[in-house]
Structures are given as structure tokens and as C-alpha cells.
Design a protein around this nucleic acid. Structure first.
Length: 835
RNA sequence: GCCGGGGUGGCGAAACUGGCAGACGCACGGGACUUAAAAUCCCGAGACCCGCAAGGGUCGUGUGGGUUCGAUCCCCACCCCCGGCACCA
């Protein structure tokens, strides 16, 4: 019997796994596949415990599935482009490629020291040309299909990072990365037409039954579908009109004014016609500046001013004033709204403030129309139309249908669907990203780089100054190029792609990581994909996870994959806190996994992270909890070693393991241990495989170990006792192996089953053995627990009732009373009502 | 404001379909072993009350109500915490 030295086991087994390439896989149509994936990592330099929690969770699932006989793909890679490396280069002068590759090497070592079972043969890094050339290839395919396009637009600009941000990357009006308030700039940008898939992405969410509701809700809100109508209000005194989007066309008879956002195209025209164009423009630019500040602070006073122009309400024929209002958003809908102060709180407040007319147009289903003068807020509910011409008396829903049809018939509008989701701006004025494979030719316009000239390799740049435009623009050898179409002098695009492009399809690349003809072979993707189990941080609920769903649809429409949803089961793991805060280098509260591994071994760290709480939950790091996990593993070790060496008695030979256990010959204690063993197999399998509750799986194993210690203490020395203990310990070792693989592999090798765990399969639960011989059933009298009875598990209701009424503790509360009712919950409880 | 998730011992948590609340662990206390300590093994432990004791009783899952033989679980109202969205017409 030897002591538990986890560090030695870590070294031994990690070397052996690497040597045997234990986790490399190829397609095998004869076996069911399982694709287990954790979100790949940004190579920041050092992984802390918060990061590795995710990899541990995924590894437990991967290892379980492998033992269950699945052909498991469990790869890892690096989200290696991005701003921090470039910003660091500006400060330190170290090239991003150097620092990134160094960081990758270090973090890979950290993961290997945790014994995560990755197929390292498929490792990828997005900053390498053999990966990002496929970004370029895909960009070209999207360009050909009109899914990638260029337009001038007002974009979110981060003045610190010197780059454009997607709407999703603007948080509270500030850059998601550095927190600087975002500015607006007009630039020519590349966009991906994700809005073409808005409905598909929304309806697909209904079928993601194994995703957390939280994530689906966030995605649905983000897509923000709303049904309504577009209606044109003609200008009263000028040619043309104003298109508005409304979800409440049923209230159009109450539209007493029109509001333009400060970004609206007509605002300039109206300014030119105004009495004081200068003052007009100053107001507008003040509003445009306010918009940003308002988002940061959350509330800006609603204000506006009259443009001097009027429009015509297409249904009432009235002249209605046109105002500019600071709360109307330029980028949503048409950038203009019809104002119905009766039904919209914002319009109501605006009308009261500027004395604009309010007209009552809806009465509630069960009451009278309100009195305008006594209204203190807008009435937003549906009801029945009043004072609405030919539509008076209709329900809101019916009126919406008829009014939309009428508008369409008259050519002044139509029913439409509006999305909050906008096209994805992907141009970045940075160096450390995928070059956009386009060439600007004065003769031919925008021309894609032909496939046979891909990749457009990112040139080495000597200097990072952090100023000006795209760093690539300052490299003449990169910029100046012959047009692929006419051969004339042309310029390369010098922007790079948003790094979220890289992460939107890397999971397909893992299916065929070394393909040099295509991003991946569709046949290989058809075998491995979609990902069966995907885990990562909830912070990617909208960005990464919606873009990936978009790309899956693009690949689907290119005929390269046969599904729409890339991730079948999603688990969003909670963060690990230290001293109540998220771990971060700047706060100085990071827990370094290497330090912990040196102290207690990889398995104790893995086990602690699993046991401390359910995976989705945030947890607070405690050193004492880690020590507890180490102590428990040592306890398991001693238990197994005792039975192996015969110290506990029995002294079974390995060959005894194959001898079947004769259930009838066992003592009650022995039968109890067998029952516990099989019940534990059931619980652990259910908890890891189905419920993904790793903490209760560990609890179940701890219970088994506690029982085995008591059993061992009783000192039974019969051959049957050894067989039963052997079965229990072997099962335990197998169940432990996803969580604590080094310890389990070592025990497996020492103890059996034959050939160690590499040849083993996940233990199977035998319901017959696990079945209790007798059950203890609580008895309630008038809802209070008054006694317990012992009965066979299949006892009839009548038998249970008789036993219950005979139980002394129960009699004390029933005697002298009338038993009015007895409820028997079979095998669970007897409830007596007496009075 | 809207949407989602929560609130259970000193602490992390469990309770799977409405059926013994607090499994498992941390911290703590007691015992065994030891010259001693550590380690290990065993035992104890929701709160309050009665009892010398064995034991018994009452209360208890954020608050108040409801449904039910029975509620941490279902329903209604409310309080608090966390996360997301937030002038989206």
C-alpha cells in the first residue's frame, strides 16, 4: 500500500496520454459520435481558475462520453487575433504574433497540466494564415451572394482603440473592451447581412430546447421583431413625404404630429428653409450629441422643436406639424414616427410639454373612452376605436388589418416587420486581424481577391504607433496591387475583420482542421457536427452565439452543412469569484491553477471546481474547499489500496473479479453495499450525463465511499465481502475517472479491471440489485410526522395502511379519534387524517 | 420600466414527478489512536422549549395569504438580490 502522491500521478498519466495520443479521433461511421466543445480561449497569457472551470466541466462530459462508447471529438484552439495584443505591442514594441504565440504556449501547458483530454492534433489558432485564409474565402462567398456589402454609415467609433465597434460591442454607450464613451463617425464599412436571417434566427430559437432560457430570451430581445406598418405622411407644402413605422396603425386617427429623429434626411432640407437655419442646425447637432450621453446616463429630458413644416395625416387629411425630437432614433425603423399622444407615453409627455393636441381614439373593451383633460398618462392598451371615421367601433386588431390593407391599396404604406437587429459591421481599422480580401480598382470598383491568391497574408509591421488609420494602409508593398480583373494599378482594402468573424465558425474547422482545399470537408462536418455539448461564459449569449448561428445558416445555404443550429446543448458556466469579485489581473485576485496543482494535484482542483456548486452558478473560491477535495481523493486512494493489498481482508486475486456475485449468498450488509454501488452508478450517470449537475454526482460518490468505509470497518473477511467491495471500488474508480482522471487511471491500473481504464467501459446500473429489499415509510397524522414503518417496497396500500395504524407513535395521535381518511403515496408516505 | 434567474443552517449547497427539509462538503465540537501533535478513523450538530436522562414538544425554506391529507416545489399579492434589455415608435 502506497501513499497518495497526486503530482507523480499527474506527470505519469499526462505523459502516457500524450504518448498514446489517447484523445485523437477519426470519423468512424460504426460508432455514435459526440462533439464536446468549450469556447476557445483568447490567449491573454495566463489562464486563471475562472477560465479553467469551463474546460474542466467540458472534460468531465467528454471523458464520460468516451467511457460510454462514443467517438468523442474534444478539440481546443485559440481566438488569437484581437486588440489587447496589438495594444500591448504599441506599448512594449513586442510584435503581436510573438506575444500571442508565447501566450498560447504557456496556456496550453496550463491546460495539459490539468489533464484536459483534448485532441491537440486539431489545435488551431485564428491568427495563423491556414486558419484566417478561410475567413477570407468565406468573405468572398458572402460577397458573391450579397451577404457581405459595403456602405457608408455612421458607426460607433472608439477613440482609444481607434476602431469601429459593432452595435453589440457598445455597452452603455461605451466601448465593451476599454469602457471609453463611443463617438459617431461616418465611414465606408463592410457589413454582413445578418438581417437576411433575422426571422430564421428567431424561429430557430424555439427549437433550441437544450439552451438556457436566459440566453434564448436575450437573443430574442436582441433580434427584436415587431410587426407593424409603414405609412407615408405626405408633406403639406413640399413634394415628397415622410415614411414612418408604427405598430399601432389602429391609432393613426390620433396622430396629431410627426417627429423626426435628428439624423433624418429631411432635417437638412427643413433647416435650409427655416427662418433661422443657423439656430435650427445648432439644435440638431445638440440633439445628436445628446443621444450618446443619454444612453450612458439612462435618461435625457425629452425635447424637440417645430420645423416650420407640416405633413398630412393620410387618414384624417389634417395638416399636422412636423417636429424634430431628441428621443427619436435615427437607426431604428425609418428614423421618423407618427406621434399619437393618446396611446404612447413619450408622445403624451411631448404633447403636454409643447401643447400639442391629444385626441382620444381608443376606448377600453370594458368601459368608456377617457376624458382628454383628465388623462395623466397615455393609454397604450388595445381596445375599440372611437372617433376614427369609417373604422370607429372596430377592435384594435381588426383595425390594424384593415388600415394596413387600405394603406397598401392606396400606395401609401404596407404591413411590415421591423427588427431591432442590424447588419453586422465588421470593418476594423486595426492590424491584428484577418485582412479583408478585397481590392479597390479605379476601373473595376471593388474586386475580390481570387481564391487561388488566398490567403492575403498579414504583413509583418515593424512599428505600432497607435495613431491614425489602419496600420496596413502605411505599408505600400501591401496596399499597391494589380487589379485581378483588369491588371491596372489598384489598392488593397486595409481594414481587417472583426475578430468575432474568427470565432463564428471555428467549431467547423475542428471537424477537419488541416484541410488546405476548403474550410472543412462537408462530409467530415456531417459526421461530427453539430456540436453536442457546448459550454462557455454567459457573456457570449448574444455576440458570439448569434453570429455562430448566422454563420451556420450561411454554410447551410452554401451546401456545406446540413443543419441550421450549430450547438445542440448549451451550458453557460458561472464565474469564479475571489473576495467577492471576478478574478482579474488588475484586481490582483487571480487564483493560479498551476499553484493549486502543485499543492494538491490536478484532480483535487478538478474535483473542487465540480463539487462547489452547479456549473451554471457563480462560486466563491475557498482554499479550504480545495483541501477538502484533496483529502477526499486521498480517502478514496486509501480505500482502494486497502482492498487491493488485502489490508482490509479478503485478499482477492484479480481473477476473482470475473466471478459473478451470488446475490442470494450475501449477508444483509453485503447486499446493502451492492445496492448502494448500483444506486450510485444510477445517480452519477444521471447527474453528469443528463442533468449536468456535477456537484451532486460528486456527492453521490462521497456517500458510497462513506458507506464503504463503514463496511470495511466491520471487518467482514469473507470472500463474498471482498467480491462486493471489489465491485464497489471498481465502479467507483470508473465513475471517478471523468472527474479525477489521473487518480482513477492509476487505481485502475493497480486494481483492475484488467487492462486499466483505457479498455474499460462506464459501469452499468442494475435496477434489480439497486432495488431496496425493504423501505422505511414515514407516517403523518394530520400533516405531522408521527412515526415510521418498515415494509417491502411492493407492499399494497392496504398493508401499508394497516402497518401505519398499528405503529405505536402513530397510535398515540390517533387513539380516541376518528380516522377520517388515509392517503397512501405508494412506497413514499402514509398520511392519516384524524379528528 | 420590461424580460429572465434567484432568496433554504455559521458557510457552499441538496431535496429528480406535490410526499421524512437541510443529503454531500467546509468550518466547528466530542471520542479513538499517539508520550504529544499532525494525519487518520468514528461520532455529533437547524432554532427554541420541557426533561437529570432516555425521550418528547413547538417553530422552521424572504414576507403575507390561498389550494391540498400533505407545499422549498403549484396559485395570488408583496419585499429583497443578481443578470440582461432599456426612449425600438
Amino acid at each position: 500500500m502506497s501513499d497518495y502522491h497526486p503530482q507523480d500521478l499527474d506527470r505519469k498519466w499526462q505523459a502516457r496520454w500524450a504518448e498514446s495520443q489517447a484523445f485523437e479521433v477519426t470519423e468512424d461511421p460504426a460508432r455514435p459520435k459526440f462533439y464536446c466543445l468549450e469556447m476557445f480561449a483568447y490567449p491573454s497569457g495566463h489562464a486563471h481558475v475562472g477560465h479553467v472551470r469551463n474546460y474542466i466541466i467540458g472534460d468531465v462530459v467528454a471523458r464520460l462520453k468516451r467511457l460510454q462508447g462514443f467517438n468523442v471529438l474534444h478539440p481546443f484552439g485559440w481566438d488569437a487575433f484581437g486588440l489587447p495584443a496589438e495594444n500591448a505591442a504599441i506599448k512594449s514594441g513586442i510584435h503581436p504574433e510573438t506575444s500571442t504565440l508565447d501566450n498560447i504556449a504557456h496556456m496550453k501547458g496550463q491546460l495539459q497540466r490539468l489533464g484536459i483530454s483534448y485532441a491537440w492534433g486539431r489545435e488551431l489558432a485564428t491568427c495563423l494564415p491556414d486558419y484566417y485564409r478561410w475567413n477570407q474565402w468565406l468573405f468572398t462567398r458572402m460577397f458573391e451572394r450579397g451577404l457581405a456589402y459595403r456602405r457608408r454609415s455612421t458607426v460607433n467609433w472608439c477613440p482609444v482603440d481607434h476602431t469601429v465597434l459593432a452595435n453589440e460591442q457598445v455597452v452603455d454607450g461605451a466601448c465593451w473592451r476599454c469602457g471609453t464613451p463611443v463617438e459617431q463617425q461616418d465611414l465606408e464599412q463592410w457589413f454582413f447581412r445578418i438581417t437576411a436571417y433575422a426571422d430564421d434566427l428567431l424561429s430557430g430559437a424555439d427549437r433550441l430546447t437544450e439552451w438556457p432560457d436566459k440566453v434564448l430570451t436575450m437573443q430574442r430581445n436582441w433580434i427584436g421583431r415587431s410587426e407593424g406598418a409603414r405609412v407615408t405622411f405626405a408633406l403639406a407644402d413640399l413634394p415628397g413625404g415622410i415614411d414612418v413605422f408604427t405598430t399601432r396603425i389602429d391609432t393613426i386617427f390620433g396622430a396629431t404630429f410627426v417627429l423626426l429623429g435628428p439624423e433624418h434626411g429631411l432635417v437638412q432640407t427643413f433647416a435650409d428653409l427655416a427662418d433661422d437655419p443657423q439656430a435650427f442646425r445648432e439644435q440638431v447637432s445638440r440633439f445628436r450629441g445628446q443621444d450618446r450621453a443619454g444612453r450612458v446616463s439612462g435618461a435625457v429630458e425629452k425635447e424637440g422643436f417645430f420645423t416650420g413644416q407640416f405633413a398630412v395625416n393620410p387618414f384624417t387629411g389634417e395638416r399636422v406639424p412636423i417636429w424634430v425630437a431628441n428621443f427619436v432614433l435615427g437607426e431604428y425603423g425609418t428614423g421618423a414616427v407618427m406621434a399619437v399622444p393618446f396611446g404612447d407615453q413619450r408622445d403624451f409627455e411631448f404633447a403636454r410639454k409643447y401643447n400639442l393636441p391629444i385626441r382620444v381614439v381608443i376606448r377600453p373593451a370594458d368601459g368608456e373612452a377617457p376624458d382628454v383633460d383628465r388623462m395623466t398618462e397615455a393609454h397604450a392598451d388595445d381596445g375599440f376605436l372611437v372617433d376614427s371615421g369609417a373604422y370607429t367601433g372596430l377592435s384594435s386588431a381588426e383595425a390594424r388589418r384593415r388600415l394596413s390593407n387600405q394603406a397598401e391599396g392606396r400606395g401609401i404604406g404596407e404591413a411590415t416587420v421591423q427588427f431591432r437587429l442590424k447588419d453586422w459591421g465588421i470593418s476594423r481599422q486595426r492590424y491584428w486581424g484577418t485582412p479583408i480580401p478585397m481590392i479597390h480598382c479605379p476601373q473595376c470598383g471593388v474586386v475580390p481577391v481570387p481564391d487561388d491568391q488566398l490567403p492575403v497574408v498579414l504583413p509583418k509591421v515593424a512599428q505600432f504607433t497607435g495613431r491614425g488609420d489602419s496600420p496596413l494602409a502605411s505599408i505600400p508593398e501591401f496596399v499597391n496591387v494589380a487589379c485581378p480583373r483588369c491588371g491596372g494599378a489598384a489598392r488593397r482594402e486595409t481594414d481587417t475583420m472583426d475578430t468575432f468573424v474568427d470565432s463564428s465558425w471555428y467549431f467547423y474547422r475542428f471537424a477537419d482542421a488541416h484541410n488546405d482545399r476548403l474550410p472543412f470537408d462537408p462530409k467530415k462536418a456531417a459526421y461530427w457536427c453539430p456540436v453536442d455539448f457546448y459550454s462557455g461564459g454567459v457573456e457570449h449569449a448574444i455576440l458570439h452565439l448569434i453570429y455562430s448561428r448566422f454563420f451556420a445558416r450561411v454554410f447551410r445555404d452554401l451546401g456545406m452543412v446540413d443543419h441550421s443550429e450549430p450547438f445542440t446543448h448549451l451550458l453557460t458556466q458561472g464565474m469564479v469569484l475571489k473576495d467577492g469579485a471576478v478574478m482579474s489581473k488588475s484586481k490582483g485576485n487571480v487564483v493560479d491553477p498551476d499553484t493549486m496543482v502543485q499543492k494538491v494535484g490536478a484532480d483535487a482542483l478538478r474535483l473542487y471546481v465540480m463539487f462547489v456548486a452547479p456549473p451554471e452558478k457563480e462560486v466563491e473560491w475557498t482554499d479550504s474547499g480545495l483541501d477538502g477535495s484533496f483529502r477526499w481523493l486521498a480517502r478514496v486512494w486509501r480505500l482502494a489500496e486497502q482492498w487491493r493489498t488485502g489490508a482490509a481482508g479478503g485478499g482477492t486475486e484479480a481473477s476473482d473479479a470475473t466471478r459473478p456475485v451470488d446475490q442470494a449468498a450475501l449477508s444483509p450488509d453485503e447486499r446493502a453495499i451492492r445496492r448502494k454501488t448500483h444506486d450510485t452508478i444510477r445517480r452519477v450517470t444521471q447527474d453528469i450525463d443528463v442533468r449536468k449537475q456535477l456537484n451532486t454526482a460528486v456527492s453521490a460518490m462521497m456517500e458510497l465511499v462513506n458507506d464503504l468505509y463503514l463496511f470495511t470497518d466491520k471487518g467482514t473477511r469473507t470472500p463474498q465481502a471482498s467480491l462486493v467491495a471489489r465491485e464497489a471500488v471498481e465502479s467507483l474508480v470508473l465513475m471517478l475517472s471523468p472527474c479525477a482522471p489521473h487518480t482513477a487511471d492509476e487505481l485502475g491500473e493497480r486494481y483492475g479491471p484488467q487492462g486499466g481504464l483505457a479498455a474499460a467501459t462506464w459501469p452499468v446500473y442494475d435496477p434489480e440489485v439497486a432495488r431496496a429489499e425493504e423501505v422505511v415509510i414515514p407516517v403523518q397524522v394530520n400533516g405531522k410526522l408521527r412515526g415510521r414503518i418498515t415494509a417491502p417496497p411492493d407492499a399494497s396500500d392496504a398493508e401499508l395502511e394497516t402497518l401505519a395504524l398499528a405503529e405505536p407513535g402513530v397510535r398515540g395521535h390517533v387513539d380516541g379519534k376518528t380516522v377520517k381518511k388515509v392517503v397512501v403515496a405508494k412506497g413514499r408516505l402514509v398520511s392519516i387524517v384524524a379528528g
